[in-house]
Design a protein around this nucleic acid. Sequence first.
DNA 1: AAATTATGATACTAATATAGTATCATTTTT
DNA 2: AAAAATGATACTATATTAGTATCATAATTT
Lengths: 203, 203
Amino acid sequence: MTEILSGTKYSKSAKAVLLAAKDLFWKYGIYRVTVEEICEEASISKMTFYRSFENKYHVADIILKDITSKSYTEMTDLFCSNIPFPQKINQFLSLKKEMARKVSIEFIKDLYAENEFTNSMKKYFEISQAKLMLIVKRSFVEAKRDGWIRDDMKIEFILYMFESIGTLSKDEKLLSLFDNSEELTSVIVNFMFRGILSDKKVV
Amino acid sequence: MTEILSGTKYSKSAKAVLLAAKDLFWKYGIYRVTVEEICEEASISKMTFYRSFENKYHVADIILKDITSKSYTEMTDLFCSNIPFPQKINQFLSLKKEMARKVSIEFIKDLYAENEFTNSMKKYFEISQAKLMLIVKRSFVEAKRDGWIRDDMKIEFILYMFESIGTLSKDEKLLSLFDNSEELTSVIVNFMFRGILSDKKVV
DNA sequence: AAATTATGATACTAATATAGTATCATTTTT
DNA sequence: AAAAATGATACTATATTAGTATCATAATTT
């Protein structure tokens, strides 16, 4: 939790804002939270807020980028490593769980609500996703070659499903079926990998 | 969930409003939710809303009363029944859990934020609580007489702690330590009863 | 089928909330 | 002591929201 914004990049007050904003965004999403609320929660004045940040979307942007960049680095490292495929999947599951705990469903909901500010965030989110997919694909190709994945499974299909984990979380109807993003993610991810893993080599 | 508003007291559209409002209030509290949002969620027009309800606080009032009245009836029945004391406590725990699932922490937070509308709701909440306490007290007195409760435990102290379960949930600082009211309640309740039950008669 | 009733869509006003800025006093850091 | 950061307040412009009036349309009842 407090690992967020680890460097000395931000001043004391700016950090207070980022932490307070994160808590509020997590609970209520972005659009329901006001700048004044954030300031009150961070115990700073509104002017101090506007001296460091453009607006609340700027804050949300920093928070999102901080979290996704860390998560994608971990993911990339995982899929680039030489550990056996099933172990990769296990670790992937726990990384996903951890990430779900880090990114609230309310946050994502507001992110994908049309808005001139959130659009740039969306893009960043999607670009990170795309970069990761290249690495993941390579990993899946190797795994298939090594017999870890059922023969009738096309890599393209797997990748499509893999990407859906991110895409699905944009679907309001699906989101509303779950209480939190952690639950949703674990359901999707578990479902996916149970169906993918070859029967010959059970973890 | 859907047992809410079981009678034919409300029209189809009014029921839709109550259910939609409940979902929104549960997630975001009362003040963050607008009438128009409720209408959209309930798929009815704003006019239809205002033909049935005064405002969103009126809706919140009905929801709260519906839930508390049911819960307090169950509690009263439980403590008036002739089952052994430890069993009463066990059932009390599950009732409390069920109630926690029914009343969101966001809802209570807004309820106890100063506001001319929520004041009447607060009163109703507190009166129900007071009525229940009379019955609970009688039950505790009997339990002590029958040796279920440690001798050095004063009934007044127990009642105080018992009431705290409700009062504590008003404390912002404590609330913020937990993700949901269910967690908070179960922590308090469990803590309480483990310390109260006599060592001689373990359940 | 006609009448009654409930609902919807739209447009509107008044009230309220919020964003963002200017200014100056105060505190903290250097 | 000087410089930099923060706070408090007041302010304007804008956006949001509450609540109502009006008329059209759909659903029910008779």
